[in-house]
Design a protein around this nucleic acid. Structure first.
Lengths: 351, 351
DNA sequence: TTGAAAGCGTTACCAA
DNA sequence: TTGGTAACGCTTTCAA
C-alpha cells in the first residue's frame, strides 16, 4: 500500500523523537506510558513537541512485543463475520462485550472460527484473551486454548474452559408448557440447524433420535417433553429444520407448516427471527393470531416486542451475556455461569 | 492475566522450536511464511512437529514489528461500538467490509472515534489501513490520517481523503417529490441529529437557517425543497429533531407529530428506523396507512420490506458501501465515489 | 536448501 | 527525575 507523504522525511521513531528533543528514549516512553515517572511540565512539553513533529505515540507492534500484551481482545464467532452482523442476537452480544471492553480499555478484534486458516492464524497470537461465541471449529478452538491465554465460551461448553450459557432445555420446556397448557390442537415446531442439511426440510423419525448438546437439540427436547407431558405427540413431519436463522428461510418453513393439513394450532419456534417470519406468513394467509394460531418465539430480540401482534417468547439477555463473558476475561476467579431466562407473555400466544 | 500451564515448561519461540527440531530459525520461519523456500516434506515435518511441541505460529507482535505490517484493518466508528451494533445500517456496512477483508486476508479491529483517547491511541498504530464510518471526532481523524496509511471515509467528506458517499440531498428530494406529488395535505418531517440537543424536540426558524454538510441537513434540505417546489411550506414546528436513531426516541417524536392538530397527511422520515416507528404509532392511533397517512422512509433496512404495510423508502445499499470502501483500501488508484440510490415504492406511501 | 546475524521500535531495569 | 542498554521474537539478506 502506497502512503501519503506528509511532513515526514524519515521514519519517526521514539528514538528519533528523543534525539530531536534532546532527552532519552526512556523519558519519551515514560511520557506516554507512565505519567508519574516525570515532571508534569516535562511531560506536557514532550507530548506537544512530539505531536508537532508528527509522532503520535509508540508503535503498537514494538510495544506489544516488548510488553507481551496487546490490549486487544479477540472475539471468535462460530460463523462468518458477515452472518453475525445480520443476526440480532450476535449484535446484542457484541454490544455487551464492547461495553465491558471499553471500560477495561481494550480493543476488539473480530475473528471467525471458520475463517480461512492460514490468513487468520497469524492474527490469533495478537489478542490477550478470547471470547468464543457459539460452538467453534474444533481445531481453531484447540489451537487458541493452547495459547494459554484467558478464554471464555459463550453458548457452548467445553472442558477446562469457563463459559456463559443459558438453560436451553428448561427455557424451551417452560415456555412451551405455558403455551400448550392453554391451547389445544396441533403442534408444529420450527427450528434452525437441527440436522446437517442446507435446505429447509422436515425431520424423519431417525433425526429425532440423535441427541447432542447443541442449542437447537436442547430446545427441541424441551418442546417435545412439554408436549409429551400433555400427551400430545409431535410427529417428525411436523418439525422443520431451517439451515440458517434468516427471515427468508424461516418464511419458507413457516409457509410449509401453515399450509399443511391439518393446519397447526400452535407454532413453537426456536428463535424470534423464525417466529416473526411465521407471524408475517400468518398475516399473509389470513390466519388470525392468537385466535386461530399461537406462536411462541425464543430470544426476545428488539423486534419481538414491536411486532403486531407482539411476540410471546423467552427473554435471554444477550447483551448481558456479552458483558458477563467479557468480565470473566478480566476476573479469572469467576466461574462458569448459567444465566436465567424469562418467559414473556405477549399477544402472539395467550396463556 | 494468569494463564493455564499446559505442556509448556518455558516460553515457546520460533528459535526454541528451531533448536529442538535441529534446523535454523530461517527454516521455521519459511515453513510458516514461504512454502516455496523449502521442500514440501520438510515443511510438513516442521509444521506437524511444531504443533506437537505446542508452537502454533509466529508471534503477531514480533512478526508485525519486523514486517511493518499487521494485516489488520481498523474500522473507526463515529459513535460508540455499542451504538453501532444496534444500528441496522452500521451492521450492513460492517458486513460488506467484512466480506472484502476476508477475501483479502485481513482482520478487522473495531475502534470508536469517540473512544477514550488514551486507551485507544495506543492501538491506532496497529492497523495497516482505516475505514471511517460517519463524521468522526476531528482530532482522532487527523491523528490517524497523519499516520500516512490508507484511509477511506464513508458517509462524510474530508479533503485529501477518498470517500464513499451517496447523494443525500438528491435522494431525499426525489423521494419526497414522488410522494408529495400524489398526496396533498400537511407535511411533517422527522429526522435524527438535525440540531445539537439530546432531546426530542421541534425546530425553530433559527434552526432551519444553519446549513451544513451533514447527512441530516442534506436530507432536510431535499425534503424542504421538494415541498417548496409544490408551494407547500413546512414550518419549523412541523419538523422534529430526534437525538439518536433508535425506535424509542423515534416513537416519541412520531407520537407528537401524529397527535398534533392539524394532523399531518405525510410523514417524511430521515431513516427507516424512524419511519417504522411512525407506522407502529399510526397503528396504535388507528390511523390508516396509506389512506389517511403516507410515510416515507430512508435507507431500506431489511425490516422495511417486512413491515405491514411495507415501507416506501430510498434504498441505499449499505453493504455495498462497505464493500466499495474496503476495496478502495486495497486499490489506491480508485477515486472517491458517490453510490447511486433508488426510490422504492411500497405500500406505506402511494405514488 | 540452510545457517548466522542484523535489526524492527519499544520498555524496563539499573545506575546516575 | 533521567539516561544507557539489554532484551522482546521474528524476518530477511547474504554466504555457504
Amino acid at each position: 500500500m502506497k502512503s501519503v507523504v506528509l511532513n515526514t522525511q524519515k521514519k519517526l521513531t521514539l528514538k528519533e523523537v528523543a534525539r530531536q528533543l534532546g532527552v532519552s528514549t526512556a523519558t519519551i516512553s515514560n511520557a506516554f506510558n507512565r505519567p508519574d515517572q516525570l515532571s508534569e511540565a516535562l511531560r506536557a512539553r514532550i507530548l506537544s513537541e512530539a505531536a508537532a513533529l508528527g509522532y503520535h505515540g509508540p508503535s503498537h507492534a514494538a510495544r506489544s512485543l516488548r510488553r507481551g500484551e496487546s490490549d486487544v481482545i479477540g472475539v471468535v464467532l462460530a460463523d462468518s463475520l458477515s452472518y453475525n452482523f445480520s443476526d440480532p442476537m450476535a449484535n446484542q452480544l457484541l454490544k455487551g462485550i464492547a461495553d465491558v471492553l471499553v471500560e477495561n480499555k481494550k480493543q476488539m478484534l473480530l475473528l471467525s472460527s471458520r475463517g480461512e486458516a492460514a490468513s487468520q492464524r497469524a492474527a490469533e497470537s495478537l489478542p490477550d484473551g478470547f471470547i468464543f461465541y457459539g460452538a467453534p471449529d474444533t481445531s481453531c478452538f484447540e489451537r487458541i486454548v493452547r495459547l494459554g491465554k484467558p478464554v471464555v465460551a459463550v453458548d457452548f461448553e467445553q472442558e477446562a474452559v469457563r463459559s456463559v450459557n443459558i438453560d436451553n432445555y428448561q427455557a424451551a420446556y417452560t415456555s412451551a408448557e405455558s403455551v400448550l397448557k392453554s391451547t389445544d390442537g396441533n403442534i408444529c415446531i420450527l427450528g434452525m440447524r437441527i440436522i446437517e442439511s442446507d435446505r429447509v426440510c422436515r425431520l424423519t423419525s431417525q433425526d429425532i433420535l440423535c441427541s447432542s448438546q447443541e442449542i437447537s437439540r436442547q430446545r427441541l427436547k424441551g418442546y417435545l417433553d412439554a408436549a409429551a407431558n400433555q400427551n400430545r405427540n409431535v410427529s417428525p413431519d411436523r418439525i422443520w429444520h431451517i439451515p440458517v436463522n434468516t427471515p427468508e428461510k424461516a418464511e419458507q418453513a413457516a409457509r410449509e407448516a401453515l399450509t399443511m393439513t391439518p393446519r397447526p394450532r400452535v407454532l413453537l419456534c426456536m428463535s424470534d427471527v423464525i417466529a416473526l417470519a411465521a407471524l408475517r406468513v400468518a398475516t399473509q394467509l389470513d390466519i388470525r393470531v392468537p385466535e386461530s394460531l399461537s406462536v411462541l418465539g425464543f430470544d426476545d430480540i428488539p423486534a419481538a416486542s414491536q411486532m403486531q401482534p407482539a411476540l410471546t417468547t423467552v427473554c435471554q439477555q444477550s447483551a448481558e451475556k456479552g458483558r458477563v463473558a467479557a468480565r470473566m476475561l478480566f476476573d479469572e476467579s469467576t466461574d462458569s455461569v448459567v444465566l436465567p431466562t424469562r418467559f414473556i407473555q405477549r399477544a402472539s400466544a395467550q396463556v
